[in-house]
Write a protein that binds this DNA or RNA. Sequence first.
DNA 1: TACTCTAGTGGTAACGATAACATAGGCTGT
DNA 2: ACAGCCTATGTTATCGTTACCACTAGAGTA
Lengths: 337, 337
Amino acid sequence: MSNIRKPPTMADIARVMGVSPMTVSRAFKADSLVSAETREAILKAAEDLGYVFDSTASNFRSQKSDFVAVTIPSINNANFADTVGGLADTLAARNMQILLGYTNYDMQEEERLIEQLLRRKPQAIVVTGGKHTPRARRLLETVNIPVIETWDIPAEPIGHYVGFSNAGAVRQMVDHFVSAGHRRIAFIGGDVGRDTRGSERRTGFIAAMEAHGLDASRLIAAGAPPISMREGANAMARLIEIHPDTQAVVCVSDLAAYGALTECRRLGVPVPERFAIGGFGNYEIGEVCVPTLTTINAFAREIGEKTARLILDILDEGAAIEDVRITPELIVRDSSR
Amino acid sequence: MSNIRKPPTMADIARVMGVSPMTVSRAFKADSLVSAETREAILKAAEDLGYVFDSTASNFRSQKSDFVAVTIPSINNANFADTVGGLADTLAARNMQILLGYTNYDMQEEERLIEQLLRRKPQAIVVTGGKHTPRARRLLETVNIPVIETWDIPAEPIGHYVGFSNAGAVRQMVDHFVSAGHRRIAFIGGDVGRDTRGSERRTGFIAAMEAHGLDASRLIAAGAPPISMREGANAMARLIEIHPDTQAVVCVSDLAAYGALTECRRLGVPVPERFAIGGFGNYEIGEVCVPTLTTINAFAREIGEKTARLILDILDEGAAIEDVRITPELIVRDSSR
DNA sequence: TACTCTAGTGGTAACGATAACATAGGCTGT
DNA sequence: ACAGCCTATGTTATCGTTACCACTAGAGTA
């Protein structure tokens, strides 16, 4: 019984076909020089033999993979999932594969992950955010592949970036509330110090409030990022207890905002009449819930698509390379009008 | 300027340290025989030289990777994300990495993906569901690595499975509605023929209704899977229009159920007094929304964790190998009581 | 007719790590 | 004191593919 015999290689196919291994190799490369009939016959023989192309050997020999490494804070987040989806779909056209890792909103974990991903010799690496541990930063600076930071505009970009100003986006929301006549505005976010983007939104909130000459001290920390709907609801209960005269609240994400919304409903607080609510991220929930949720669209999927196109441009060298600044869009819905 | 010099290899480190490449290699393997001081010195030298371990070469030489290939229908689905999270976290303890691909609920796409993933010589492959194209099935049958089907109990398992009966789970929901006194019960799902698990839930609904001697013809097709909240809402509107005397509805997922819930609110239909609603998947939304949502917990994360442990058991050979049957749990909440 | 030129194919070496085996010392026990 | 063993290290060959170069036959060109 030779059921455990070694899987066939290109050399086996070559032997069967009476051609050189080189020709077999070429038959598997779309754009290389083999006569159409030879290629067809080889591919058929390969299929018959149950041959499976060995990407590892191929990558090893050619010293380049078809991987793009990607780190995101959490796999279970619709925004980042959209970004990864945009990336994967756009890169799939070039037969490139995403190598995904998630950091759990932890820079230390990100460092480990980056190191592990770089071992695969990816063609490019995409990270979320513009803040990293010193060692992670050094790793990214010394690696000679394109590095793209996303979901942020880094103070000092390592390579390229595709992102937007989180602080600026929150400013839009604050401006909207202020122009609607609100003065006593609060912010619900995660505990300080973990989630970088969350912190920037918080900082942006404070700056925007102060720019309007308003008090920016109504800050509720709802727990370790990412904030769940439940935590958003709890934070809302706390906010109403501590600052009952608050008129509007900016939430670090739509999930928190939705939690806040349900808490208002439970407490019988009418939204938006008594309390205006704004979220972040344009999650599906925001356009379906009652009342619909004012939010900020950060164009998560577009970030992924544009990142992918940037990577392809860089690899093609030739095309003009430019960083991409996304302009988030305020979407005013029923929760604030 | 030698900024573009080739990255250092183990041989370079060996030269610098005055040891053999083999010793350097061993220094990077946790459990191998090198004196503590030699290892430390080598790792330090490696760090100084900016050495990055080449997993590709390592995998190639040893003819085994540390990948586990995983296909899921969609990356943007909290249930599958949880499963992947459970897998990744459990496998991370053994330094194994997930190689993720998504099929977009398309068996043809799944076939392409499986072929591509197998080229990486993964240690195991995890697929979602128990239905595949003939070619995909053959690929999985002939590959000599563990194959695990999840989220289903396949009629003819290819290798192992970690799953549950989708039909049986829906039966629990129907039984619950019936014992609550409902007779005119509807089902909201996706268009027939694409999403396998959705189809099974639909079939399960029909079977369960007929077992109770009830009419099972109130079936609303809400669009191409996966059904969004919006589509769930639209389907609900249609249901109320076509069958205004319906008493309860089983939805293919919590997202659809939530959409249905909001539609009821918009229409002023009281839930659960006038209309009971049940979902599937125990998404976070279901325990936060008002009223909270009756659902079925399929233990998505546990599926991932148990799949990972199964894989580790198989690879360790020695441990007893058993397929895992998950028992979904009906969670009764306010939308049906 | 002689002469490029191109498409199609073959031969050889190499990518970087490590499996398998070999070896040099130091230590144990009788 | 010496066989026997264990620890730490070295040597050699190799995984499967493809980069690089060489070659041939026939078409096109002067």
